[in-house]
Simulated scan of single mutants.
Amino acid sequence: MNWSMTFMRDADIFFPYGTLERRTDVQNRNYSAIFDQKTKFAAWFVGNCITPNKREKYVEELQRAGVEVDIYGGCCKKGHRLPRFNNEAAKKTLDRYKFYLSFENSNCEDYVTEKLFSNYNYDVIQLVMGGADYKRLLPNNSYIDTADFKNATKMAAYLNVLGNNKDKYIEMLQNKHQLVWNGHNTFDEASYSKSFCTLCEKLNNLDSNRRVYRSMNDHYRISRCPPFTKAEPYYH
């Protein structure tokens, strides 16, 4: 193989699922009204019910610890419709919730997908699970990472306090709105264009960009996408 073109940040051509940009417009929002319209606690849009990092088990633990999580999509037993690829429906749904579960299906290094990006612009605090460096990606005090808690019970206790603290919640939402996702549905044109422009640049300068990988296995080390084992918590 000559080049890698993946979501991993050390790829020859970085090809992320999306990117967030700093806002250039001034946000003049009635955050108090935004908070007051939220009558539900947490939502999760999901269709993959059995995953490598066992995120579904973590959600079950959250529910047992008293967190109300409404599940939309194929993994829901109550028939909630998944408003996927419909920005208006997704916004209308998430406007009622305080939290949204942006849980990846595996904790691979740098792996962060449309689960984070396509729901970023809505007025909801995201709970994240995955192998990405969220501190680099997101504004400080604007999201909640499962890896910051010893277990789901500890996280549930924190969420229940935060969900009833209007000032703290609004502060986090304001921090989140420092950035914006400029994609459409799950397609991020800006990120895709930048990656293919990088590919064109390399193709036009082959002599200075020649690479050879003799082993795909060595390049994509298993350690970059750790398998779940019972000896290791699935939320780390």
Rank of each mutant, 00 (worst) to 15 (best):
1 M>G: 11
1 M>S: 14
2 N>H: 14
5 M>E: 08
5 M>P: 02
6 T>I: 01
6 T>G: 09
8 M>V: 01
9 R>T: 07
10 D>H: 04
11 A>W: 04
12 D>V: 00
14 F>L: 03
17 Y>V: 05
17 Y>T: 06
20 L>G: 08
22 R>M: 12
22 R>H: 14
24 T>L: 13
25 D>Q: 11
27 Q>R: 13
29 R>T: 13
30 N>A: 01
30 N>F: 01
32 S>D: 15
32 S>K: 10
36 D>I: 00
37 Q>E: 15
38 K>L: 09
38 K>D: 10
39 T>L: 03
40 K>N: 12
40 K>Y: 05
41 F>L: 07
43 A>L: 03
45 F>H: 07
50 I>E: 15
52 P>W: 08
53 N>S: 09
53 N>V: 06
64 R>K: 15
69 V>N: 12
71 I>A: 05
71 I>W: 03
72 Y>A: 03
73 G>E: 12
75 C>G: 02
76 C>E: 05
77 K>H: 13
77 K>E: 15
79 G>H: 12
80 H>E: 09
80 H>S: 05
82 L>H: 14
86 N>G: 02
87 N>C: 00
87 N>R: 04
88 E>M: 01
89 A>D: 07
89 A>E: 12
91 K>L: 08
91 K>V: 09
91 K>E: 14
97 Y>F: 14
99 F>M: 11
102 S>I: 03
103 F>R: 09
104 E>G: 02
107 N>P: 06
108 C>M: 06
110 D>K: 00
113 T>A: 02
116 L>W: 02
117 F>M: 05
119 N>L: 07
119 N>F: 04
120 Y>I: 11
125 I>D: 01
125 I>Q: 00
126 Q>F: 01
129 M>F: 06
131 G>T: 05
131 G>P: 03
133 D>A: 08
135 K>H: 12
137 L>R: 01
139 P>Q: 04
140 N>T: 08
142 S>M: 04
142 S>G: 10
143 Y>N: 11
146 T>S: 15
149 F>A: 11
149 F>W: 13
149 F>Y: 14
151 N>G: 07
155 M>G: 11
155 M>F: 08
155 M>P: 09
159 L>S: 08
159 L>V: 09
159 L>K: 05
159 L>M: 11
161 V>T: 15
164 N>W: 10
165 N>L: 04
167 D>Y: 13
168 K>I: 00
169 Y>A: 05
170 I>D: 11
170 I>R: 08
173 L>R: 02
174 Q>F: 00
175 N>M: 06
178 Q>A: 10
181 W>K: 10
182 N>A: 07
183 G>A: 02
184 H>I: 07
185 N>P: 00
186 T>R: 05
187 F>R: 03
187 F>S: 03
190 A>N: 13
190 A>V: 12
191 S>N: 07
198 T>Y: 00
198 T>M: 08
199 L>P: 06
202 K>V: 06
203 L>W: 02
203 L>G: 03
206 L>F: 09
207 D>P: 00
210 R>P: 00
212 V>H: 14
213 Y>V: 00
215 S>N: 04
216 M>R: 08
216 M>A: 04
217 N>T: 12
218 D>R: 04
221 R>D: 13
223 S>P: 00
229 T>K: 03
231 A>H: 07
233 P>F: 00
234 Y>D: 11
234 Y>V: 01
235 Y>M: 09
